[in-house]
């Protein structure tokens, strides 16, 4: 039981990162990025290719994070431009369609070029006992990375001028423009951040098990659920929801079965919309 919960927390931290990457873009641009999982996979494949090329894991990881951030910015500057000219329902729908298209293109190219592509970052070392449960060094590393990134993000959004500016655009874009903030620049920076987070997710996930080339849509689904449960544009909410859902995921996979787990998580998201539409920590 304890082991299952701990596994859930490790998974949940990665979920939290995924959620942050999706919820920020949604909060700022009104775009649900359905290609997000594929961007994680892209980072994973880039890292594995660079590693096979004989580079250090650390170097490969940086290249992967940068590649994911770059692709994300490219999406913002090209494919997303017509989306931002639309408002309300049109924006949501066009955003869904175009990012879904991007998901198929990125996913398609990756499975075509790397049909057996997978990233597994093996961290050597004996399992370490945490509250009596032996945890693999990889899982511990993954958790530490996720927690560190979470701390940096919370500090960034809570205490820096630019971070405050980002929150202001989420709350009232016109108000933000009136105080001298350029929303489209903020959006591009957040797309870059979102992409970089996708890279970090790829690294963290592949430390506790292999991340395969076809994991994209599953990751997008998790990101979407975490976004809904955590609340629009809330970094702390995404992490809280991520950890909660990670634990639910592990418990349900262990005691009921993996096949029904995704349905339970989707049910949690649906229930959130019915009971608390603004999510755990959304406004």
């Amino acid at each position: 039981m304890r082991a299952v919960v701990l596994d859930g927390i490790v998974l949940g931290l990665a979920f939290g990162l995924l959620g942050v990457g999706m919820t920020l873009v949604y909060g700022l641009g009104g775009v649900i990025n359905l290609a997000y999982g594929q961007i994680v996979v892209l980072a994973a494949i880039v890292i594995s290719v660079v590693m096979e090329d004989g580079r250090a894991t650390f170097v490969a990881a940086i290249v992967g994070v940068l590649a994911a951030a770059g692709v994300s910015v490219l999406l913002d500057l090209t494919l997303m431009r017509p989306v931002y000219h639309q408002h309300g329902e049109e924006r949501t729908l066009l955003g869904l369609l175009l990012t879904l298209g991007a998901a198929f293109v990125i996913g398609g190219v990756l499975t075509w070029r790397y049909p057996d592509g997978a990233l597994y970052i093996f961290v050597s070392g004996d399992p370490i006992s945490i509250v009596g449960v032996p945890m693999s060094v990889g899982s511990i590393w993954a958790s530490v990375i996720a927690l560190a990134v979470a701390a940096v993000l919370l500090l960034f959004f809570g205490a820096t001028t630019f971070g405050r500016g980002v929150r202001s655009v989420i709350q009232d874009e016109t108000g933000a423009r009136l105080v001298g903030i350029n929303p489209s620049f903020v959006r591009t920076v957040i797309f870059a951040l979102s992409g970089a987070l996708a890279g970090v997710v790829a690294i963290a996930q592949s430390m506790s098990g292999p991340l395969t080339v076809n994991a994209g849509f599953e990751l997008t689904t998790f990101a979407l659920i975490v976004t809904v449960v955590g609340g629009l544009g809330s970094v702390a909410g995404a992490f809280l929801a991520g950890v909660l859902l990670g634990v639910v995921n592990s418990l349900s996979a262990h005691y009921i079965g993996q096949y029904i787990t995704t349905i339970i998580l989707l049910g949690a998201a649906a229930l959130t919309i019915l009971i608390r539409p603004r999510g755990l920590l959304g406004r």
């Binding site: 405050r164 929150r167 709350q171 009232d172 108000g175 009136l178 406004r283």
Partner: peptide
């Protein structure tokens, strides 16, 4: 309409 940041 003021356009304040309501949750801050």
């Amino acid at each position: 309409e003021r356009h304040l940041f309501p949750a801050m």
